[in-house]
Design a protein around this nucleic acid. Structure first.
Lengths: 168, 168
DNA sequence: TGATACCCTAGCGCCCAGGTAGGTATTCGA
DNA sequence: TCGAATACCTACCTGGGCGCTAGGGTATCA
């Protein structure tokens, strides 16, 4: 699924959001708070900057700031900046015109029977990422266990064969 | 994202669904039709069999059949059987009781600010996989662009929140 | 009795996520 | 004016896992 690029990158954004309106936050500070490797964060924050999600101030007393209000930054932007693109499976990509392209449908006339599935999955992921803003994460625990948050139940999943084997 | 295990495995299931009710379908036949490596498919179909999704007949004139009707087989079952678990990111797993566990929340009291995001994403993926049955893929293009399909529109946030909360 | 097909275990190569290293450029405070 | 602090850049390394192969064994049918 999503790599640690997204995991770390989102954490960086959350830290910056908590700093909002104040002085720029040095990356070393973020790395220390989260126990994350500084040198690696530099790569990630570079992507965020090129995507226009954060601004930077060089030199002493420098650091990073959000380029916009947390309410105007969606997780879709953040994750796409970090991962490069959002695709549930390799054979599915988004064309320049926004259409979904399946690598298995090279020769026209042959329809990929699984395209419907991956298109649906991709759509639901993108929609969720677009509907979640940075502000949602910062407000975080204040939410009284929101509709999508930590609820224990995934009702029918338990009925789905043996429930997740990897987690103990 | 999902690996080719899911990609190939779902294709195998679709081929079996198309054969439904008839004689068992040899794996070599499936491999040839899809241009997929036979020896690799054997690993995948073994998982599907252990998950109770397909039945097998050994010997000459043998092969594989669906264990149930295509309408009763969800993609959540198929993907979970193939991938082992469904998690958008490594630090998120599903506990035995169905609750979502975040590896970053080891010490109690410390709340992971990104858990909300990954929980939402995971939930939307699982829901989509559960709502899509094997029959949907076999019928394929006959569907008039269902609610989750390729439509460009992005509905409002509130709608999804409530829809999901009712499911739990 | 052979041919067909499922079934199991072991192992291998390549790619890349994840991280390190070392340098340069810019800004601030004293 | 200097040096500390910080962003910014390029190159490199490394382990693990995905995707696949190899080579058997075992059940069933003609």
């Amino acid at each position: 699924m999503f790599s640690t690029k997204s995991e770390y990158g989102v954490r960086v954004m959350v830290e910056l959001a908590r700093q909002a309106g104040e002085e720029p936050l040095p990356l070393a500070e973020i790395a220390e708070r989260g126990g994350l490797p500084l040198a690696y964060l530099e790569h990630l924050v570079a992507r965020l900057r090129k995507a226009g999600l954060v601004d930077s101030r060089r030199g002493s007393r420098g650091g990073y700031l959000l380029a916009r209000s947390p309410t105007e930054i969606t997780m879709a932007e953040v994750v796409e900046a970090l991962e490069g693109s959002i695709a549930p499976i390799e054979c599915i990509t988004e064309g320049a015109d926004g259409s979904i392209v399946c690598a298995r449908e090279t020769d026209p006339g042959h329809v990929c029977p699984t395209k419907l599935l991956w298109t649906r999955v991709r759509f639901s992921i993108v929609r969720t990422l677009q509907e979640t803003t940075l502000a949602d994460l910062v407000l975080g625990p204040s939410l009284p266990a929101g509709p999508l948050s930590t609820g224990p139940a995934l009702p029918s999943l338990g009925a789905v064969g043996r429930a997740v084997s990897s987690a103990s």
